[in-house]
Design a protein around this nucleic acid. Structure first.
Lengths: 294, 294
DNA sequence: GCGGTTCTGTGCAAGAGTGCACGGTAAGCG
DNA sequence: CGCTTACCGTGCACTCTTGCACAGAACCGC
């Protein structure tokens, strides 16, 4: 049963009873309608209509087709309504992927978004691997590091994420407080593997200390921060998070090149949809209140 | 939602995940598939697929379309099966229309036909007006009189229906027995209105007797025969029916030009179907046993 | 009875849709 | 790392579908 258009043509003929009427509704010439019917009947090997000068009367087969195609037509109309509406409505799934470090900042944003648009189901994915927007794995991505995006991704800056070099009070009490890079010798550091984390401050750290000074390494950012808090060594933490802990001491004053620029990335196809636009606006609004630079 | 073929194309792409695969299944070039998708998305104003080098991944809208179109595809396959099968199977309705005079002969034929093919529902229509085969009002018609058929009707002779001129014994006892047309004067006759009955014997009767000799006229053949039996006058009856009644006397010997040639008429579109063929064969077989010429 | 109207049916020309070819990209594999 | 494979995307030439015009047939109302 190939060529659904011919079924659609036959449907209108069966519904209206005349070739001319069907041609009007379908917006084609009546000759086209006749040819569609002829082709369909030839392929089915059965007459769908009794032809006479007053029009076309459906046979039993034609009546069967009529009822089936009527249901199909209804289904398609509803489908079109849903699809067109979906572009304009804020509903369905909204998948956001972000770097692990700010998942706790994002969570209240997503909860309030879901609260605002009850018909959406939100999902926040934080994984080491980069989710691919062009495979439809996520609607919105929050990424850091150098902008190395595929084409068809629309990128916009979100926030500047300040990082600072901290140590626990227990560490300073034991090993002292270096006042510049020159005094780093003999100190212990906490850092991520370069292979798994390309944050600018980690790159900087790797370049100014000896590899053997790094006494603790992990892939998970939360694990690294915990190591600093526990006094394992000097390491980078996000400034806003360090500020919450009075037990942490800032080792060096902040530098601009330690900052991470967070980017908001969406696929161009989804970027235009109202749902994504709504979330992007919501996120930007929330981000205004973030105190990320202390 | 016009152009159902594009939906069908999108359906295959959503199902298979690649343009090439869909093109193979659909038997078209992959460029055509791409163009269908593009056109459909443009019309809907929404992306149905995420495009990437490994293929097309359906968006939410695409998945919605997939499930709807899958149901449609199933429906159409079933429909095609029914329609193709219907041409070959003996089922559904079978509508037969015939002249009123032989309805009692036809009834057992139709009952045995329904007995042979339990899936058919038979209907026998006997009405004064001529049912139009080309309007799909009946599958098979049994007609008499001059062959004045529309084109596209296939006509085959069925039986010769003998009619004779009879009177009741009570009539003969009272008015005598005319031995030829010459002795018709002063006799009473029973006949149909010429307007409603064009049977050859009625035409003949009208031509040989005076209008005022016709003392009883009716439109219903059964009423006319009853009038003859009751002695109202001399009139025509079907020979096989008169033979059943010993109280009837044949006034004149039978003449060939009184005979009606019954024709079996079907519309060319329906003539080829197995159901109609089965009934035509069944009817002809039954007609062999009819003793219509006494 | 006879134009007027409303259908269907068909030859012919124009145009839209299709196939083909080639180019480009991404993923898998040894 | 380079080769192979399997995709997608697009300009161009062509085929096939479509639209048009006209013919024909049936029915309706005056």
């Amino acid at each position: 049963m190939d060529n659904w258009d011919e079924i659609r043509t036959a449907f209108q003929v069966a519904r209206l009873g005349t070739v001319s009427g069907a041609a009007d509704v379908l917006g084609v010439h009546h000759a086209t309608v006749i040819r569609h019917i002829d082709a369909l009947e030839k392929r089915l090997g059965t007459k769908l209509f009794q032809r006479h000068a007053r029009g076309y009367t459906p046979t039993e087969a034609g009546q069967d087709l009529l009822s089936v195609a009527q249901a199909t037509d209804d289904q398609f109309i509803q489908l079109a309504g849903r699809i067109k509406g979906r572009g304009e409505s804020v509903s369905g799934e909204l998948i956001v992927t972000s770097i692990a470090g700010i998942a706790d900042l994002l969570t209240p944003v997503m909860i309030s978004f879901q609260d605002k648009w009850p018909e959406v189901r939100v999902r926040l994915l934080t994984d080491m691997r980069i989710f691919r927007l062009d495979y439809g794995e996520a609607h919105v991505a929050i990424r850091a590091g150098v902008a190395q995006e595929e084409q068809d991704n629309v990128v916009q800056p979100l926030v500047r994420l300040r990082a600072g070099l901290y140590a626990a009070r227990s560490y300073v009490d034991r090993f002292g407080h270096p006042r510049s890079e020159a005094e780093f010798e003999g100190h212990r550091f906490v850092s991520a593997d370069l292979a798994t984390n390309r944050a600018p401050f980690h790159r900087w750290l790797r370049s100014v200390v000896q590899p053997e000074q790094i006494v603790y390494a992990a892939t998970e950012p939360a694990a690294l921060e915990q190591a600093v808090v526990d006094g394992a060594g000097i390491g980078f933490m996000l400034a806003f998070r360090a500020a919450e802990n009075p037990d942490l001491i800032e080792i060096l004053p902040p530098r601009e090149d330690w900052d991470s620029l967070l980017r908001l990335v969406t696929h161009v196809d989804l970027h235009r949809t109202r749902k994504v636009q709504a979330f992007v606006a919501h996120l930007k609004e929330a981000a205004k209140d973030w105190k990320l630079c202390r």
